[in-house]
Design a protein around this nucleic acid. Structure first.
Length: 802
RNA sequence: GCCCCCCUGGCGGAAUUGGUAGACGCGCGGGAUUCAAAAUCCCGUUCCUUAGGGAGUGCCGGUUCGAUUCCGGCGGGGGGCACCA
């Protein structure tokens, strides 16, 4: 059957794209085989799975288009490819929607998934939909509960008290970023600091390993590794005890931690955290101190508040001996700027060399000792502390270890040695990384599978009793966790003594759900968390792609989880993601109407250019201010709906545009002109293919054939290195150059039909990962065999590269 | 405050290891086609210029036969962490 299409006819994506999506489906082209050829190399490409908010946005289009290029390319290269999709489906938005719209989180979530699945399918992604799951599927969270129990048994989970932000109206714990100006972001209620017993994963046991193993991740962006290293925050210092001048009860000394023992000679006072055992003990007998502790606690823990919070202290009347000068003593304060959960919760303060200590010293009239550097231009410390440089050599005076000329680092090491020899303290490595608190006082999450028994205490649920399933009959008409007030759900039998008991009503942080989903994709129906054989065949993920905003939490938690799963026998590898790529955002200009409201791009007309660009409302022609280029967001109304773009130009144009303009790790600016340019190329290629097809039997003069073949193979060689490096913008530019040459060859009839056909065929194979529908349709128009999506990647001829 | 990254035409950006700066696209200018438009095609497009050239990758300096690329300083923009002692 031959369809005759005139070269003047325009390519119509609407007619074509769905057809090819169905054909790929029918051929099960993208399903990873369950019994694969053991000799075939495997490749696991994964994009961070979406939260089912309701509709996809351009960021999704970019993310999934990038992954799809790799997946289709590797497939053509002969790899057995796993490219799955799922849904990060638990979380607060579903509950907020339930409260606002009187829906049920479950219905809301699954409706959203259905809508977004259809949208994703319209993009023509080479996804293995047979492996799809949502983290709120009972089958998934049941296995997550099994994992939790295994972790608990392996000593990777602990239960302890933690200070949290408590919203007394919504009756829930809030994350720091949900506290705005000391008030709950939803309720507006004054947030309280509460101490609650919470479940924690002991990620801090792995601080050293998570840090060291970063070195081995050579396919990760250096930036992400650095951010994780900073977050883990390893520091070396001295832990030492300052002797009290007279014992307080049992206590004879105050243990502190410092990373700058070299500044010991400048010590002027001591400070302990309000939660420090010494402070607590003193407060018991001292109402003024007790009141001080309460006052200090009232202030929030958010970043902004801490930044502006003034240093506050309470003089305890207790003193310690100065370790260097027998005759001197140092007063001990309780201070709001000392953190209980870092180091020992107590510090020695050296105001001359630490800004915080200086601020405190000036406020409370404490001495500032700045005489122990023989700096040439030594100026006395006033209101700015002098921080001794770590890597520059300076002259020291009165240095405890007797140092005279050394860098800060050398001085620190020498002082630690000195202190160890004198028996004052010992070298100690501290990490900033804290244990991961996973308890959430929420309904729409994975129930923590433990039981509270009056007789036995906290008891893990038995595995055979899993899953602990969320009840469907809950209401959201009053604040708080519906699980807490459910009439019967909490009632259960103690797995230990068989007596009556109550279920834990906290659910897990949704970051837990996303910390192992990549392993579940290897066999999403396994009756254990992972099918060990399958998971070890596919993992680690060869190429993981997602936003930089997950550089720390999600990626670090997943790295911890892989280790925990390794320890509990669910996984063989410690690092889940071999290659990582963090893509930039899709950004767009913003527009503001005269009344200050944001205006959507589709509501206005733009004319002129440069300084003369003007925007007016389509409705009434009133002027609109053109604002900055920002991340697409609903609040700024600068979004472009993928559905509309697909309806107007087709999925291929949208994909081509987000892949072409900007380097993949940078932001791409969405512009109408850019999309039209991308679409212009779609039509150009379509016309070119037909001109070649129609001229197939016409012999060219052939004097341009060799030159064209050289360009063809050079382009192929370049694209072949650019696609695996995700340098799609560069690959696109290469393809443009080739297409320009092909058009020229057709125009001046200077190329043999064989060389022309080779050029156009290779072009189609190169664009197939990016614009798969167009490539298939052109493939047919040229009369090529089978589907281009099922055709091996072409080899370039090295002889033609010179 | 600490840590890190970036800076190339009107715009997004190319330039494999230090070797022809500005590929490719967008925009813009001119032209062709058209009754006209859309669509399409062709030519031009870093700046200055006395038309022979000259300058040029944020600025100043250095290394080098040669620097967008390496080193030092300054300026501008962006990001991460943050009372972490």
């Amino acid at each position: 059957m031959k369809t005759s299409i005139m070269a003047s006819e325009r390519y119509s994506p609407a007619d074509v794209e769905q057809k090819w999506q169905s054909r790929w489906d029918e051929a099960k082209l993208f399903e990873a085989k369950s019994e694969p050829d053991p000799d075939a190399p495997t490749y696991y490409v994964l994009e961070m799975f979406p939260y089912p908010s309701g509709r996809i946005h351009m960021g999704h289009v970019r993310n999934y288009a990038m992954g799809d290029v790799i997946a289709r390319y590797k497939r053509a290269k002969g790899f057995e490819v796993l490219h799955p999709m799922g849904w990060d489906a638990f979380g607060m938005p579903a509950e907020n929607a339930a409260m606002q719209n009187k829906t049920h989180p479950k219905g809301w979530t699954y409706d959203n998934i259905a809508a977004m699945r259809a949208q994703l399918k319209s993009l023509g992604l080479s996804l293995d939909w047979s492996r799809e799951f949502a983290t709120c599927d009972v089958d998934y969270y049941a296995q997550q509960q099994a994992l939790f129990l295994d972790f608990l048994e392996a000593g990777l989970v602990t239960r302890k008290n933690a200070k949290v932000n408590w919203d007394p109206v919504d009756m829930t714990v809030l994350a720091n970023e949900q506290v705005i100006d000391g008030k709950g972001w939803r309720s507006g209620a004054e947030v309280e600091q509460r101490e609650l017993t919470q479940w924690f994963f002991k990620i801090s046991d792995y601080s050293e390993e998570l840090l060291d193993a970063l070195d081995g991740l050579d396919e990760w962006p250096a930036r992400v590794k650095l951010m994780q290293a900073n977050w883990i925050g390893k520091s070396r210092g001295l832990q030492m005890t300052f002797e009290l001048t007279e014992p307080y009860g049992e206590l004879t000394g105050l243990e502190i931690y410092t990373t700058r023992p070299d500044t010991l000679a400048g010590a002027s006072f001591m400070a302990v955290a309000p939660e420090h055992p010494l402070a607590v003990a003193l407060a018991a007998d001292n109402p003024a101190l007790a009141q001080f502790v309460v006052d200090v606690r009232k202030s929030g823990t958010s970043a902004e508040e801490l930044e502006t919070a003034e240093k506050q202290g309470f003089e305890t009347g207790i003193h310690v001996k100065h370790p260097l000068y027998e005759s001197e003593t140092l007063p001990v304060y309780v201070a709001n700027f000392v953190l209980m959960d870092y180091g020992t919760g107590a510090i020695f303060a050296c105001p001359a060399h630490d800004q915080r200590d200086l601020d405190f010293a000036r406020k409370y009239g404490l001495p500032v000792i700045d005489t122990f550097f023989a700096m040439d231009d030594h100026t006395p410390v006033e209101n700015e502390a002098f921080v001794p440089p770590k890597t520059e050599t300076v002259d020291w005076v009165n240095q405890p270890a007797g140092i005279e000329k050394a860098t800060g680092e050398e001085a620190i090491e020498a002082t630690i040695d000195w202190a160890e020899k004198k028996g004052l303290g010992e070298a100690k490595t501290q990490f900033r990384l804290r244990d991961w608190g996973v308890s959430r006082q929420r309904y729409w999450g994975c129930p923590i599978p433990v039981v509270h028994c009056e007789k036995c205490g906290v008891v893990p649920e038995k595995k055979e009793n899993l899953p602990v399933q969320l009840p469907d009959d809950v209401t959201f008409d009053i604040p708080g966790n519906p699980l807490d007030r459910h009439p019967t759900w909490r009632d259960c039998t103690c797995p230990s003594c068989g007596g009556p008991a109550k279920r834990e009503t906290d659910t897990m942080d949704t970051f837990v759900d996303s910390s192992w989903y990549f392993a579940r994709f290897a066999d999403p129906t396994a009756e254990t968390p992972t099918n060990v054989k399958a998971v070890n065949r596919w993992l680690p993920v060869d190429q993981y792609i997602g936003g930089i905003e997950h550089a720390i939490l999600h990626l670090l938690y997943s790295r911890f989880f892989a280790r925990a799963m390794q320890k509990t026998g669910h996984l063989a590898v410690a690092e889940p993601f071999k290659g990582l790529f963090t893509q930039g955002m899709v950004v767009h200009e913003t527009y503001k109407a005269a009344d200050g409201s944001w205006v959507m791009p589709s509501e206005l007309t733009i004319s002129g250019e440069g300084a003369n660009r003007r925007a007016v409302l389509k409705s009434d022609g009133s002027p609109v201010e053109i604002g900055g280029i920002e991340k697409m967001s609903k609040s700024k109304r600068n979004t472009v709906d993928p559905d509309e773009i697909i309806a107007t130009y087709g999925a291929d144009t949208a994909r081509w545009f987000v892949l072409s303009d900007s380097p993949p790790d940078r932001d791409v600016i969405w512009t109408d002109a850019g999309v039209q340019g991308a679409h212009r190329f779609v039509q150009r290629l379509w016309r070119l293919v037909h001109r070649v097809a129609e001229g197939a039997d016409r012999e060219g003069q052939d004097n341009g054939s060799l030159a064209l073949r050289k360009i063809t193979h050079k382009t192929l060689s370049n694209v072949d290195t650019m696609i695996p490096a995700l340098r799609n913008n560069a690959a696109v530019a290469q393809i443009y150059t080739l297409v320009n040459a092909l058009e020229k060859g057709v125009d001046d009839n200077s190329v043999s039909s064989a060389a022309m056909r080779e050029g156009i065929t290779i072009t189609l194979q190169m664009i197939a990962p990016m614009m798969p529908h167009l490539a298939e349709e052109c493939w047919v128009a040229l009369g090529c065999e089978g589907m281009v999506g099922d055709t091996p990647w072409p080899d370039f001829d090295p002889d033609l590269l010179a």
